[in-house]
Design a protein around this nucleic acid. Structure first.
Lengths: 189, 189
DNA sequence: CGCCCGGGACACCGATCGGTTTCCTCCGAG
DNA sequence: CTCGGAGGAAACCGATCGGTGTCCCGGGCG
């Protein structure tokens, strides 16, 4: 038997938070959120301190899945260069999907002006995790300046995701080649 | 004598709109906006159709000044490569200033989910203008693929501005070298 | 001098905000 | 069957939202 016939209210709230805050922005009301999750406000405020906490918790929860969506498997045997490029190839694929609106963590960093906001911290950590991944690959690949290359790749990732989210242009053939040029420049062939 | 002792209500509203929407986000209320501009709501709604129109008009008005802030002078005699790099050097400088929160046009594109929103169109045009500038320089400089290079540079610009706006890291020594690597890769020496 | 009207101050509109409370039902344990 | 707690529905809180209407003051112009 399965442990739960349907997702718990907590999980439904977190899923709805991710979904709605992403699609409609962090200005989305608690009312609409609870309606989407099929949970009463009463229960929501028993499970979470505030809307801000719910937002942060939603981002936190999605972080591993988001990383899995973009990063190569830990045991992916390809060389560091290919592993790093994998992220940009995945990003190009994701950006082709209709509902794509850019990296949710970047969006939160832009929308939430208060850097003390709990969600800002979560988003910052997600970005740092990406940079750390790039840096590890850069070191393994013998890049000239691994730290710099990692920051450059994160910068390209954010730029690409932001531009794709704005919707004006497709990322196809843009993100990966740009990253490749930087890998080349850093001596990671 | 000066033509006006103080700025017109219209100008004060546009200035306040740029300032507050940038610093606090587009969720800022009309009330606070008018207070900051020293103009009554009544007058505001005589001058502008709606808050959305005011936002769009504010972005529109600031566009030339923003371009002047980043782009080299039209008669700047340096070669195309240096002219393109100028943008990223200026961006690094701007990002060092305390109140810097990233490119306002990018922020609007991220915050305003509705792509039909008048402000989205203005922001999109501002981004296009930057790409056009890069493309013109790329062509003059004999880049391998001017259109691609222009999109890459815009992507780096957006990424850099977004990351600087998030506040975690400084852009010093990051944006310009990244752009330089792409210029190199495109054969623009 | 007197009139006129631009525009500021502010009350007000219905809607919604984040958040709290009340009530009542349902469901499982004893 | 009774009891108790979890949790949904919805009223309610004061504040604020975008936007409008009213009133009244001050200054330019005939």
């Amino acid at each position: 038997m399965d442990t739960q016939a349907k997702a718990s209210p907590r999980d439904r709230l977190l899923d709805a938070a991710i979904e709605l805050f992403y699609r409609e922005g962090v200005g989305t009301g608690v009312e609409a959120l609870c309606r989407a999750a099929g949970v009463s406000k009463r229960s929501m405020y028993q499970l979470f301190e505030s809307k801000d906490e719910l937002l942060a918790a939603g981002l936190e929860r999605r972080a591993p899945g988001y990383a899995a969506l973009l990063l190569p498997a830990a045991d992916d045997p390809r060389p560091p260069r290919a592993r790093a490029l994998h992220v940009f190839e995945r990003l190009e694929e994701l950006s082709a999907e209709p509902g794509y609106r850019g990296c949710p963590y970047l969006a939160v960093q832009v929308e939430v002006k208060d850097r003390e906001h709990p969600a800002s911290a979560v988003a910052g950590r997600a970005k740092q995790a990406l940079t750390d991944f790039f840096r590890a690959e850069a070191e393994r690949g013998g890049a000239t300046d691994p730290a710099l290359l990692a920051r450059q790749l994160t910068l390209v990732f954010d730029g690409a995701s932001a531009r794709a989210g704005a919707g004006a242009e497709t990322l196809a053939g843009l993100a990966a080649p740009t990253a490749a040029a930087l890998l080349d420049a850093a001596g990671m062939h």
